[in-house]
Design a protein around this nucleic acid. Structure first.
Lengths: 138, 138
DNA sequence: TATAATATGAAAACGATTCTCAATTTAAAA
DNA sequence: TTTTAAATTGAGAATCGTTTTCATATTATA
């Protein structure tokens, strides 16, 4: 059974305080160092993995590595989906009936059970879509 | 402007012949070596990247690295979504009106434009969901 | 052909992540 | 409280996927 260590609490608190950001393990370690409670990078990795497996954190896999973000409603009945803007990197949470409807449809008609915890809808947020319409598209 | 080299053709042909599989760059290189037209790993990476950017290949990012799969309909009007079974790893293509409806809804109500080419719906296919119901869940 | 632009491949470099292992901390038992 | 066994820590080494380097080879064009 896992022990409750001060490193574990520090990692979770760090992500809770920056609940609107998705951070890399390195950024978490740096943040903790600056705030005066340094945690070894290996331990940061270990704790992030454990906290994710219990549902307290979201994990977002990008081409450059993993991001972790605090999960605001860890015990939602059906989990929640993530929207990630590939331009600014921001991740937002989406709890929308239409998505549930789609998942039901996929299960019934396409024999596929989507796992919301593993699925990230990637695209453009409004702000970034607007900017790119002005300047040259990307 | 890119040249049409024999390595480029070999990489694309390799993935076309195994259109139902998502392969790692290393697996592509190995396959080519075995089939008698070896291509350097660095070149495999370069060609996969280019072929993906033209829409001929899908790219799926996993925790262990990237997978590439032949795209059966590269010029679909709205792109297509991918379903990936996190148990057996198989990737299937989904061209479904319900998904388009959802994307329209997200754009209209949530101000977010999903990019199908960047989005992978991860979950369990029927076969794997069935197996796991029998044996211990995973 | 001659040439200029582009691609190749082997090896080195790189960066994210995992592993190793001795030292430390935790939680529960005595 | 002390003891004890299990679990965690952290620094550095190791691993692994990917990118870069650069001299050589290939491609398309003049």
């Amino acid at each position: 059974m896992p022990y409750t260590t001060k490193q574990r609490r520090a990692v979770l608190q760090c992500l809770e305080e920056r609940a609107s950001d998705a951070l890399t393990p390195g950024e978490v370690a740096e943040e903790l160092r600056r705030s005066g409670s340094p945690v070894g990078l290996a331990t940061v990795y270990r704790q992030l993995e454990q906290l994710e497996s219990t549902g307290l954190l979201h994990r977002i896999q990008t081409g450059e590595g993993a991001l972790y973000q605090y999960c605001p409603h860890p015990s939602a009945p059906h989990g929640c989906f993530l929207l990630r803007c590939e331009s600014c990197g921001r991740v937002s949470h989406l709890d929308c009936g239409h998505l549930q409807t789609l998942c039901d449809h996929l299960a019934a008609e396409h024999h596929f059970r989507v796992d919301p915890r593993q699925t990230v809808l990637t695209g453009r947020c409004q702000a970034c879509a607007g900017k790119e319409a002005l300047h040259g598209a990307n």
